[in-house]
């Protein structure tokens, strides 16, 4: 395998983006920041890959005008996944591994506020036996949360502690759309939204976009003084149907962690947990001990832009390598209802 590193990362997150659903105008400054960080220009990028969703935008081919933000004449080597940009990053990593290119820029974007997000996401379910009932994502997560509560795997306090830590950390994140810690008692005094979950247990609806630059070997060292070398990246999927998997754990997260050779030595992990209890599920499935610092960015409970939030976890983790805070970090992304798909990216400073 070639040595490939994360060498650039830029993001924007907000409650309510007032521009177009293709978000080209939001991507322009994000790509600009990536060029500035790496000292590169468009022509230095060997491969481009993005992640987004037509249903989030409310129209077919919503991604085609997003690539205008790159400036695509002359044409570029480019692909797109209908997934979080973390999987676009995976496709780009593959492309670099084939030896065809040495550098790649991946991006994700989504304007969740254009529709009613939790209702739109009901279209991700089985179209014959589930979607006609329009179960929303929050309810599916709530069913998952209660299974763990009933089984004694976690309690209300544990959920509130996750929220309190996340929103406290979010105070230092300029892109957080929800921030401000209080106390477990105060959080538990708030009303239920989707019993047993309160609003603060659920990621806020967020618009946003993000981009990450990858590079191999010397190209990485040229762009970044301390690249975040990807020592392992893998993903896996579970079935969607709630009856066919144990919702209190995450088989796909466990398999992804095993595929990267485990998580020993990870000091900081950014987990894409859109619901508070899911952080507990992931922490255990990924084998992250109590000494691992979780989500210093505030995580998805502070901002969760669909189709870029997973990539943002990888970018936030990589920053901790760049600035020397840590030598080994983990970025995680999820997709689908109740943690159906999970991707793990372990990065190291050398």
């Amino acid at each position: 395998m070639r040595d490939v590193a994360v060498v650039g990362f830029a993001q924007r997150q907000m409650k309510d983006f007032d521009g177009s659903p293709s978000m080209a105008e939001l991507l322009v400054p994000i790509l600009g920041e990536c060029y500035e960080q790496t000292g590169w220009q468009k022509k230095d990028i060997g491969f481009w890959c993005s992640g987004s969703s037509d249903y989030l935008a409310g129209r077919s081919f919503s991604f085609v005008s997003a690539i205008d933000a790159i400036g695509v004449l002359p044409p570029v080597n480019e692909s797109h996944v209908e997934m979080d940009a973390a999987w676009a990053l995976y496709e780009a990593w593959l492309k670099i591994q084939t030896g065809e290119v040495d550098t790649a820029l991946v991006f994700g974007f989504g304007k969740a506020s254009a529709g009613v997000l939790r209702r739109t996401l009901a279209l991700q379910l089985d179209p014959y036996t589930m979607t006609p009932l329009w179960p929303d994502t929050v309810c599916l997560a709530a069913l998952q949360a209660r299974l763990g509560l009933d089984a004694g795997l976690w309690d209300e306090n544990a959920l509130a502690e996750v929220v309190n830590r996340s929103l406290t950390d979010a105070e230092k994140n300029e892109y957080a759309v929800r921030a401000g810690g209080s106390s477990v008692e105060e959080l538990l005094a708030r009303p239920m939204f989707a019993d047993p979950l309160r609003k603060h247990d659920c990621a806020p609806v967020t618009d946003g976009a993000a981009a990450i630059v990858l590079a191999a070997g010397d190209r990485a060292r040229e762009a970044n003084q301390r690249p975040a070398w990807i020592s392992g990246i893998a993903h896996s999927s579970d079935g969607l149907h709630l009856g066919t998997r144990d919702l209190t754990t995450s088989g796909s997260a466990e398999r992804a962690a095993a595929a990267v050779g485990g998580t020993d030595g990870v000091q900081i992990a950014e987990l894409h947990a859109p619901f508070s209890h899911q952080e507990l599920v992931l922490r255990s499935a990924l084998g992250l001990g109590e000494d691992v610092r979780l989500n210093p960015s505030g995580g998805a409970l502070a901002a969760n832009p669909m189709f870029s939030a997973g990539a943002i976890r990888i970018g936030e983790a990589a920053k901790k390598i760049w600035d020397g805070t840590a030598d080994k970090v983990l970025g995680h992304a999820t997709s689908g209802p109740a943690l159906q798909q999970n991707l793990v990216c372990v990065m190291e400073g050398r």
């Binding site: 692909s79 379910l125 969607l240 149907h241 088989g251």
Partner: peptide
């Protein structure tokens, strides 16, 4: 009329337990 249909199709396609990607 299904958002990311590969998610609900995962079991039927034998993808549960494996890496699954969706290109568009």
């Amino acid at each position: 009329g299904v958002m990311m249909p590969e998610l609900y199709l995962a079991e039927a396609l034998g993808a549960a337990g494996k890496p699954l990607m969706r290109v568009h």
